[in-house]
Amino acid sequence: MKSSSNELSTPGSGRGLLDVYSNRFLLKLLVRKEIKVRYRGSVLGLLWSYVKPLMQFMIYFVALGIFLNLQKATPNYAIYLFSGIVLVNFFTESLGNSTRSIVENRDLIRKIYLPRELFPVSTIWVSAAHFMPQVVILVGAALLVGWEPSAYQLLAVVAAFIIVAILGTGLGLLFGAINVYFRDSENIVDMILMVVTWASPVLYTWTMARDALGSWFFLYQANPMTVAVEIFHWAFWYPTLGSEQIGMVELPSDLIALWLPVALLVSLGVLFFGQLVFRRLAVHFAQEL
């Protein structure tokens, strides 16, 4: 006769990101809370999702497009610039907020147990909610200058978004966990966010990096953000060019066939490592906080 004893499990242990899917309702509540708290007392509220990227775009366009005359060498430079800015903004907001997510929710973590991964993942969803209005502006601007993308290009946009979301989640889990023990992590992330806009072809063309880096260019191209930004350029900017303008530009070779899978694998590797570190450190979050 078999005994009916229950198996014991370690308190606070879980299945990592799988628990996030199992607790989708809690995730939804956290996302709503994050949005309400962020815009509490704000006059514009969610409209800041439109104002901030537009102001950022105007500064870069005037400084680089007009003063440095980059718009002369890059047709439809405004579309080129903004298509990169919206994607980088999604990544920087995701990483910055997820790094602080555990520390900022210390009161909740001390009181009850729930999957700790919910906190950084919820900030990714909030960042995605801010990303969508920016994409709407990008689509509207692209349509004004003759945007006619193919279905293949639109699918590539979805793939680029997924790559950046995975990368942001992985790094958010990593730095969010480390930040509980070493608050200097926020300063490290701030420096990363300062560099990321310049570490991918947002403000300049990828050929400039290729010519400057030479044999080291493959490392630049293996950066998932570089690949994702170039996919956005290919999908939003390239279809707005006329036949004469297309001859003035050069797209990266094997962007979809080679570099997209490489970017996806690198992002998944970062996610795996971030989840591994997070699970090891999460056991003592409540004590450390």
Rank of each mutant, 00 (worst) to 15 (best):
I124K: 00
V262E: 03
L70I: 12
V43G: 02
T207C: 05
V227H: 02
I79L: 09
Q245N: 00
K28D: 13
S185W: 14
L118W: 03
L29A: 00
L87H: 03
T169Q: 02
G41R: 11
W206F: 09
D19R: 08
E250Q: 03
V121N: 09
L258F: 10
A165L: 07
E230K: 06
L219E: 02
R279N: 07
M55Y: 11
V103W: 11
Y152W: 15
V43T: 14
V227Y: 04
M58G: 15
D19C: 03
N76R: 08
F131G: 01
L54S: 04
A63K: 10
F236P: 03
Y152Q: 15
G14Y: 02
M55S: 11
R38D: 12
I79S: 09
L18H: 14
I66H: 10
L154A: 11
V31M: 06
E148L: 08
Q56F: 11
V88R: 00
L264G: 15
M191D: 09
L167H: 09
Q221H: 09
A212V: 06
F57D: 00
S200C: 10
L8I: 15
R100Y: 01
Y181F: 12
E148Y: 01
W125P: 08
A129D: 12
I112C: 01
V229M: 04
P11Q: 09
H284V: 15
L54A: 11
D254P: 00
P133R: 00
L27R: 02
Y113F: 04
L108F: 11
A156D: 03
L26F: 00
L29M: 07
G14S: 06
